[in-house]
Write a protein that binds this DNA or RNA. Sequence first.
DNA 1: TAAATCCCTACTTATTTAGTAGACAATGAC
DNA 2: GTCATTGTCTACTAAATAAGTAGGGATTTA
Lengths: 154, 154
Amino acid sequence: MKISKKSEYALRALACLGTPGAPEVLSIQEIARRERIPKKFLEQVLLALKRVGLVQSTRGKAGGYALSGDPQAISLQTVVWAVDGPLAPLPCVADANPVKCADCASLEYCWLRGIMLEVGEAIAAAFARVSVAEMCQRAEASRRRESHVPMYDI
Amino acid sequence: MKISKKSEYALRALACLGTPGAPEVLSIQEIARRERIPKKFLEQVLLALKRVGLVQSTRGKAGGYALSGDPQAISLQTVVWAVDGPLAPLPCVADANPVKCADCASLEYCWLRGIMLEVGEAIAAAFARVSVAEMCQRAEASRRRESHVPMYDI
DNA sequence: TAAATCCCTACTTATTTAGTAGACAATGAC
DNA sequence: GTCATTGTCTACTAAATAAGTAGGGATTTA
């Protein structure tokens, strides 16, 4: 029940782009450096985020990525969904083209599916509760705390 | 964010053992046949369930597995935890020996961890809400419905 | 003692995830 | 217009994990 590295990187990248005081537009390279993410891998992640409209990009010199849309209105569910696909505990529970399990008579009559549908909704809700804006705030708060961490705490 | 086949099989096996009217004790072979699970694989799954005390076994001829403990009191969280490990969205959120992410200063100061701790708790809670007993009931209800499904529905 | 069963460890294969490579397209500075 | 710098896209490779298989040992009952 883990999220992928892709999702983790997506979240970090968005937090990076939403850092107060940072430039609106950051290049892949810059984000990769700040978050210590393999650049070419991050490239694909950002592309996925772009496809669903969570970020926008400009090309050429001084190009890069910027947040798109209202960070308050975008939830982590949207982000994770965009890169990892449906937040479903079983393939037959996926919101986009669910795959029937081999041994079940049908999607409608599978009891396990019924249970997992509910669980899946709870998982989605858990991610939905946190907005990108809130994530950025928490990241910022953490940075401030970190900056005066006593040595023996690291 | 999927559960493993192992977990799925574990749930099916428990539902099988909790079927009203079925023998208390079922052999691996019998469970495998009923649920169409590879026998040798199921063997490992049941062993894992036994180790945490969810089932008990008797050896020798006419041996097999039976539920152990009160099905009302056992949640799906316990089951999935037993075979898949912690229900955590990131390795650093695992309840049993959490692994610090490479790029974080420490477990305490990672903002992503803070968020994922909350998400992880919600996921755990979602599984915790369903008991093995309830699962068995739902499976039974589904079996009844399935038995008079009109042909064109399959 | 023989048959049936669970117990345990190791191995193999398949699938998914993570990461890399390289050619291409757009933009801006000169 | 050329060049450096950036994003776009597709394909490939490597590493990790999940799924399944194999086989010998231990225990019980008949």
